[in-house]
Amino acid sequence: MAAGRAGAAPGLTGKLARLLRDPFTVAGLTIYAVLIIVAVFADQLMTHDPGEILFRANGRVASNQPPSAAYLLGTTNLGRDVYSQLIGGSRIALVVGFTAAICVAAFGTLIGLLAGYFGGKLDAILMRLADLALAIPFLPFAIVLAGFSRSSTTNVIVAVVLLLWPNTARVIRAQVLTVKERAYVEAARVTGASDARILFVHVAPNILPLTFLYGSVAIGWAILTEAAVSFVGFGDAKNISWGYMLQDAFVSQALSRGSWHWFVPPGLCIILVVIAGFFIARGAEDVLFPKLRS
């Protein structure tokens, strides 16, 4: 509402301002920003169609070309442009990462809010479910899911959400338990606010920063998962993601052939994006729970 106005609510605005002074957070946010810009302007940035098989002037397939002015990062063994694949991959990473993150944050927060606020049986049931989900090994589940039901990006997202919501839900629940004790929540109750109103108007906004925190970690996880699923060959073949690129490079023995230009860039991109998530989480944790450190 009044965010940005001088002396607005201390909670979020003040904390966000402090967040922006943390070098790690700034680094993380910069990586995300670059990712978004690249993904948005992917069409302009790509020099070739990532799926197109390129030919040399002599009519032969332009396979395994080293980086050059024409092929910025060289080509794959089937003659596709690595640079364009990398740019195209950012789009998938963005879609997968952000969609999954938003779903994880939203779903986890909702469950956490309900469990924490209403307590009792509902809480017990939801938290048992969370334990169950946490007990499932992450990657195998994603692969099984992707394998069973047609490999598609949607499935990867579903898998990530199904597996990551408990982390968010638990932390949000713990936070709700403390916010619930605050007198202003009781004040809302005594002035006749309904449970829904208390939960969404009085409690939730005071917990929002945490949702962002867990959302930002989920972005990294989702991209990593998508890469991993694609890498082991259960990815969506229509979408050339970074994980798919790695898999392609791997099965084509790019490593033994020394085609660094092929597998290093996607690997680096994955690492950067995952690290960005952790940087932001780290900075946010400092600001939100200063007691955890020092």
Binding site: M1, A183, Y184, E186, A187, V190, T191, G192
Partner: peptide, 21 residues
């Protein structure tokens, strides 16, 4: 009942939602 019976909180620093004007 809520409309008819009200509470003045002991600790005013905690009794107002910090995000509300």
């Amino acid at each position: 009942f809520r409309k008819r019976a009200q509470l003045v909180f002991q600790n005013p620093f905690d009794a107002l939602n910090p995000r509300f004007t």
